[in-house]
């Protein structure tokens, strides 16, 4: 599974509250699509209008730290983000993203070299992240096969619906 897109560069410590403020959880408790205009609004005003489908967020340390709010990765996917490459992720955000089929990749070099607008390429199975524009390439740990299947089906729910059960058995 290879993902290619334009980089949107963000800094360190972008929390789930930056991605979608907790207050909207109660304001729009019934309809997540109403939260779209507020995605990352305090980091990049009108972010949702500036994203093109398939854009890849490239961020620093601790992307998605904070609350367990699954709205965060879901909304990023809803506005069109194709993947997130960061130096490290919040523990829950990382899991949530895999579960809902948003590819998330830990990388060391590209988050430093990439600039907004660069073309980024991610090869999940082989574990490669490339900044095509800058000609930078790095090895990252490849996705375990179960992750890869879940993400390529579009998330665990899609996986279960298509294949009739969990991607794992107790060993």
């Amino acid at each position: 599974m290879i993902i290619r897109g334009r980089a949107i560069k963000l800094g360190d410590d972008v929390s789930t509250d930056h991605i979608i403020s907790g207050k909207y959880k109660f304001e729009f408790i019934d309809d997540m699509s109403k939260m779209i205009p507020h995605v990352l609004e305090d980091v990049i005003p009108e972010f949702y209008k500036k994203v093109s489908k398939g854009d890849i967020i490239v961020a620093g340390r601790n992307f998605g730290k904070g609350s367990s709010r699954e709205h965060a990765p879901r909304l990023l996917k809803m506005v069109g983000i194709g993947a997130v490459v960061a130096k490290s992720f919040g523990f829950i955000f990382y899991r949530n993203s895999v579960n809902i089929g948003l590819p998330v990749v830990k990388a060391k070099v590209v988050p430093d070299t990439a600039e907004s607008g660069d073309v980024i390429e991610v090869d999940l199975a082989r574990g490669i992240v490339r900044d095509v524009t800058k000609g930078v390439e790095e090895k990252v740990p490849p996705y375990p096969p179960e992750f890869l299947e879940v993400v390529s089906e579009g998330g665990i729910v899609e996986y279960i619906k298509k294949r009739g059960g969990l991607p794992w058995s107790i060993r």
């Binding site: 949530n96 179960e146 729910v157």
Partner: peptide
């Protein structure tokens, strides 16, 4: 473990997590 809603929905429905 504090997890997101899909993780919890799967654990609630099928009894397992990763």
């Amino acid at each position: 473990l504090g997890l997101g809603s899909t993780d919890v929905a799967v654990a609630l429905s099928y009894g397992y997590t990763w």
